[in-house]
Design a protein around this nucleic acid. Structure first.
Lengths: 345, 345
DNA sequence: CATAATATGGCATACGTATACGTAGAGCGA
DNA sequence: TCGCTCTACGTATACGTATGCCATATTATG
């Protein structure tokens, strides 16, 4: 096979063989309407034959468009080598696939909130925009987010859909999902529902989920009870501890709504250790539908977020920002996944 | 040297303020030895003050070096939106962190084996090299890998460390790990060990793991028994089916070595359904140490691969290839993680 | 003190593409 | 026939950096 085109061909090489000028090649390949169909097909044929591909750097340098976006993960503490939050890994898959569909390259990076990503990625013309996937105390991020907005940075983030002063956000309809979870537990006859999750301005997504639960309780004529609530962030051990705390307090309860699957899995451990049967004594519902939720035993009823839609929406919202178009709707649908932890087989 | 101070500062702007030429700025910032220390610090100060950052595209265009590598995932079947294999997600974390340490940007993409990535990433000067993370039938990949090698493509892959004609590979010492798993089961007194996993040239990593098991059996004076072996790829449902098949066959066995955690988790499901107690009736050991292994109940004894080392080694081996240096050792250590599925509490 | 050797940095230019602007020819109506 | 409008390209140049080669000042050398 004579694949030995010593040097990588440039648009000049194509132009030479096609008997046209280099700009004509550029225009033809980019689909400019001012090139005749005949010329275009001829050029495309030669390009294919020579195995030509546009030099990304030259193209981006000239056009000021990289067709690349940077995906930034943040973590609560920078633990060097801890596991990535599995939820964001699911998101990663969706984002990757959809960005490919849109012809975008994807740069990925783990960051600390303090770093200057707009410098690193945007100002250096590596990427046209940023997607922020972070978890952790929201109040710590807000000032940083506001800085980015002021700086004119093109970005969207996954999280609570709130004040746009903190940037465009895409997120699940947590309030509605919380209501759905609550209604499910109420339908099953549970009346004393524990909520595990820090539901305040530090974790607005959790707050919305709790708000939804309260709505469902209200509708059923039940007053939310702070004794049935424990603050915790999304971590298995902390979920276990929070559940243990409720058990130790001796308060009566017949169901648990955990603000995340990690919390739920920890809570199930504590319940098992306390001799409670799931779901006979205590029903448990989580949030996120991690792979582990299906594997746990009993398997965990949970709220699944539509990751596919989330990935699409994040990308398209970012593109809308970059191209100054109207952004798509920020709220993503959720779905109740019934499993053994609420409904015995 | 007369240049208008535009929006984003360029090296000309720095040069103007520092009273030097643009090339001097470039050299100073890149650490050229032919720039005096005094000039360099002055330039660096101005650069910082102006929030300057080198234009990645211009730099790469001129220097022919992108300092970017592309991470390519392959999947068995392209199922549109299936879950990513969790094992590779763990790898992703390690690779991401180590590439950051080396000052490399990381492009990530999901691919089909047939696509032309060297065109897409290397020929278009998006990346300097490729890391291939794939699973699936190895025999289908081999010709493709050989093409890449012939083409002079800079790449490394995760997988079986075998003939370098298929490119530089980094992988766990699967044979030794298999021996370790076997010895563990033998130490516990098990004599009839089922192996679940397709151990042939299609899945050379599995083959090595099985080979290690056989060594351990040999050393204990036990002959490997094909009746205690089932081919399956790394998938929970298929693992369950393979286990069921062994159960249906009625062959006696007291332990299972699954070639991956996904297989092991499926197998445990089948065992539970058949009324077998784990580990009292049947001990189970897996491979990979997925997060799910710790969550399953009973928790799953498994072989952990050193993902941190794997990420480092992949990156450094790739850099060695690109810079034509001596590559690091390809074999990665493994570790036995003891859990309930082999040792009751 | 003359001259060679460094140290330091300027000059010119290349990297490969995209785009503003100009222009030849075709078509067309008066 | 002239002039006008389009179509379909060519010309010239910019994007921002890196680097080979050369020039000057400085110091070392004999």
């Amino acid at each position: 096979m004579g694949r030995k085109p010593s040097n990588r061909p440039t648009s000049f090489d194509i132009a030479y063989r096609a008997g046209v000028s280099q700009p004509t090649v550029s225009r033809a390949l980019r689909g400019s309407p001012s090139i005749s169909e005949a010329t275009r097909t001829r050029i495309e044929a030669i390009a294919r034959e020579l195995n030509y591909s546009v030099d990304k750097n030259a193209s981006s340098l000239r056009s000021k468009r990289t067709n690349t976006i940077a995906l930034l993960f943040f973590e609560e503490d920078t633990p060097g080598d801890s596991k990535i939050n599995p939820f964001f890994l699911a998101m990663l898959g969706a984002i990757t696939r959809h960005s490919a569909k849109r012809g975008l390259d994807l740069l990925i990076s783990f960051q600390r909130m303090e770093d200057d990503w707009h410098v690193r990625y945007l100002d250096s013309h590596r990427a046209d925009g940023l997607i922020l996937l972070g978890y952790g105390d929201y109040t710590l991020y807000r000032s940083r987010l506001r800085d980015l907005v002021d700086h004119g940075t093109h970005f969207v983030r996954w999280g609570a859909v709130d004040d746009p002063a903190f940037g465009a956000a895409i997120g699940s309809d947590n309030a509605q999902a919380g209501r759905m979870a609550g209604e499910h537990l109420l339908d099953l006859g549970h009346r004393h529902i524990v909520f595990l999750g820090q539901a305040d301005e530090h974790y607005p997504e959790f707050a919305d989920r709790y708000g939804g639960l309260c709505e469902a309780l209200d509708a059923a004529g039940i007053a939310p009870d702070d004794a049935l609530r424990r603050d915790t962030i999304s971590h298995e051990d902390l979920g276990r501890a929070a559940m243990q705390d409720v058990l130790d307090a001796g308060t009566e309860f017949d169901a648990v709504f955990a603000a995340s699957d990690l919390i739920a899995l920890g809570a199930m451990g504590a319940l098992r250790a306390a001799g409670k049967r799931i779901p006979e004594d205590v029903a448990v519902i989580g949030f996120d539908d991690l792979p582990a939720a299906a594997i746990a035993s009993p398997s965990l009823t949970t709220i699944a977020q539509d990751m596919r839609a989330a990935g699409e929406r994040l990308i398209d919202a970012l593109l809308a920002r970059i191209e100054e178009r109207e952004p798509p709707s920020p709220l993503i649908g959720t779905q109740l996944i019934l499993r053994e932890s609420t409904t015995p087989r």
